[in-house]
Write a protein that binds this DNA or RNA. Structure first.
Lengths: 224, 224
DNA sequence: CTTCTGCTTAACAATTTGATAATATTATAA
DNA sequence: TTATAATATTATCAAATTGTTAAGCAGAAG
């Protein structure tokens, strides 16, 4: 499973850092680490991670302070933040969540559970736009220009690929014909109306199933 | 803080139901309860809650089955689902999260923590501006160009969708025929008077219930 | 140079939609 | 109650929209 989301971990215990880093990397996440609160803020600003895992008790700035500070910055209003700490007292947990964190995990936490939680958070955020799109048994690899369906490779021409890629990037969303033209063909080129249809048809043909729905008078949407 | 959200709790222990219900109501949430899996599904369909708390071990259908089944239904793809259970074994937790749940809490959980978690989930949900209009068990999704009623998809043509969309955007408000013409047809096009009626009729027919009220000599309004 | 592939388009078929006319029904005021 | 205006219903048809096929063209590959 390849993700491609960036995760920042801040913890002062090297062992913990290492274990988590290993497990997340195995899942395909890109991992950055920080040894204390200040380093966490600094790296967060530089790397713009998609998710930040914060230990609460750290030398210097503690996790809650870090979270508070990051949430002040517009760029981090949306970022997922999770506390992971040995402090299991209720007051701290409530305080942590009220700071605007998305989850609070207490050590020790098993790698499997940690990963499930993280996957679950990303799933809701729908942030799987980097690299590989996976919907059901359809896989789209943007870098390799490859599409796999039920384990079998499917060869799509460039425009077909771009089009499917666009539609599948937000399953369920209806893309207006105009949107499609702008995204796939660009604003310069002008192509006839039937062009989109023909490409849609080819994709439908090659995939063998009808996962692209026509919304008449509006556009197309991808749905499994 | 965003309150007024509807929460469905499913648990077979009356005591737990009561405690949670009390605490959530104190926070301003509207609470519905169910004593087993089947009842949970039934009430979910009828009430369209914003968040569902599921016990895993329940007579009849267990929580994971309920979650699975709900996630199959289009209307519940986005709904927040949280497991709350005494089963703290890792495998179950991972399985639960992979079913598409948003969180997994183990009993006993303190009311404060529970509430923090729930607030936290809602906080994140509201950040992602989903163009979803929700009135009772009717959902209108502008992005998907789709309408869901009691869990079932309803297919509306473009004008029908726009019209319903307009009326439902302000439930209770009476839209003058002129207003409707301007909003849905634009100022350019001129259509006969009966045209609106015909579309209203089609919507009424497709929805199966009469949630659009005629105000004679004035216009129409949407009401559940 | 030839062959192949991908992209676009034209032309036509198939489908869906939306508007209207004609008629029935309902609400309201006199 | 009745007359009247407003809305509901139904069927029908034209227009809008999309699906399909085949053909032409340009550029890449052989």
């Amino acid at each position: 499973m390849t993700k491609g989301n960036k995760i920042l971990i801040a913890d002062d215990e090297p062992d913990i850092l290492e274990i988590i880093e290993f497990n997340l990397q195995a899942q395909g996440y890109e991992v950055i680490t920080a040894k204390n609160g200040d380093e966490a803020i600094e790296k967060a600003k530089k790397e713009s991670p998609d998710l930040i895992i914060l230990d609460i008790m750290m030398p210097g700035k503690n996790g809650i302070e870090v979270c508070n500070q990051l949430r002040m910055i517009p760029a981090f209003k949306q970022t997922l933040i999770v506390f992971l700490t040995a402090l299991s007292d209720e007051a701290t947990e409530v305080k942590g969540l009220e700071t605007g964190a998305d989850d609070y995990l207490t050590k020790p936490v098993s790698p499997k559970v940690l990963i499930s939680k993280i996957n679950s958070l990303f799933r809701r955020l729908n942030k799987e736009e980097t690299g590989i799109i996976k919907i059901g048994d359809l896989q789209i690899n943007r870098e390799k220009y490859g599409v796999t369906f039920r384990g079998a490779d499917i060869v799509l021409a460039r425009k077909e690929f771009e089009l499917l890629s666009l539609l599948a990037s937000k399953p369920g969303k209806v893309f207006l014909r105009n949107e499609i033209l702008n995204q796939v063909w660009g604003t310069e080129v002008i192509v006839g109306d039937r062009t989109i249809d023909v490409h849609i048809r080819k994709i439908r043909q090659k995939l063998g199933i009808d996962c692209i729905t026509t919304v008449k008078g509006v556009g197309y949407k991808f749905e499994m």
